[in-house]
């Protein structure tokens, strides 16, 4: 297989370039990540992030043949003979496939990603019915890999002002939690022309999410809450 990889080391390269590697998958190689490890064996200067190798830590998100995904859950069998790998689009590149995710996490932090409950904590757990808990499914599973936000044109244009699909998915995760008491503050926090309303339902995020989550639907639900509050 031919893997063409975006390379850039600011320590020595004047500008980025694409480098081709010829890799023969071995029998035990199942995922794209296995091939990247082989590339690194050939050329130890190739830099990328990886950890859990099973799609739960969110480290090895990258742009694979034009689409964002995780190297560790992308099957070699599903790839064409020629693979092109680039860093996640729209974020500053630190080196090779490693991007600076500061802006992405800043937006995540901006939605106050924690349950706020002003009542004195009870002795035991707060109660929540199975149906209430069900509301959090499809939200809490986010792995913060940034595949969605970095596939979103609105986020590319306004990464400092638009929260982006990952942050908004989490914004709704806390709005949907019956234990949280800051619904109104959370909606205030999203009420401006950019933070929420820059989402134009392009739905690249849904297509990109390696966990099968649906940020567009969550964003729609936040918009519903806004409307309901207004009338």
């Amino acid at each position: 297989m031919k893997i063409s990889i975006y390379r850039y080391d600011p320590d020595k390269d004047a500008k980025p370039y694409m480098k081709d590697y010829e890799v023969t998958p071995e029998h035990s190689d199942n995922m794209l990540l296995d091939l990247l490890v082989r590339v690194k064996d050939m050329d130890d200067s190739f830099a990328f992030r990886r950890s859990c190798r099973e799609g739960v830590c969110g480290s090895d998100a990258m742009n694979i043949n034009g689409k964002n995904g995780l190297a560790c859950t992308t099957k070699i069998a599903d790839l064409p003979e020629q693979v092109t790998l680039r860093p996640l689009p729209g974020l500053p590149v630190i080196r090779d496939l490693i991007v600076d995710m500061t802006q992405f996490f800043k937006q995540y932090h901006s939605i106050k990603p924690y349950v706020v409950n002003h009542d004195a904590p009870p002795e035991r757990e707060r109660l929540q019915s199975p149906e209430e808990r069900e509301e959090l499914n499809g939200l809490y599973e986010c792995i913060l890999c940034a595949c969605c936000s970095t596939s979103c044109p609105s986020f590319w244009w306004n990464p400092d002002k638009f929260v982006g699909p990952a942050g908004l998915l989490q914004a709704y995760r806390f709005l949907a939690d019956t234990r949280d008491q800051e619904t109104s503050e959370r909606l205030d926090n999203l009420q401006d022309p950019y933070r929420l309303f820059r989402c134009h339902s392009i739905m690249n995020c849904v297509d990109a999410c390696p966990k099968g989550l649906n940020p567009t639907r969550a964003i729609g639900k936040i918009k519903d809450l806004m409307v309901r509050r207004a009338v």
């Binding site: 349950v115 409950n117 109660l127 199975p130």
Partner: peptide
């Protein structure tokens, strides 16, 4: 749980 960890629930809410 008080911190917000999304445990699954029983019918009793526990």
């Amino acid at each position: 749980e008080h911190m917000g960890m999304p445990f699954d629930r029983l019918e009793s809410g526990k």
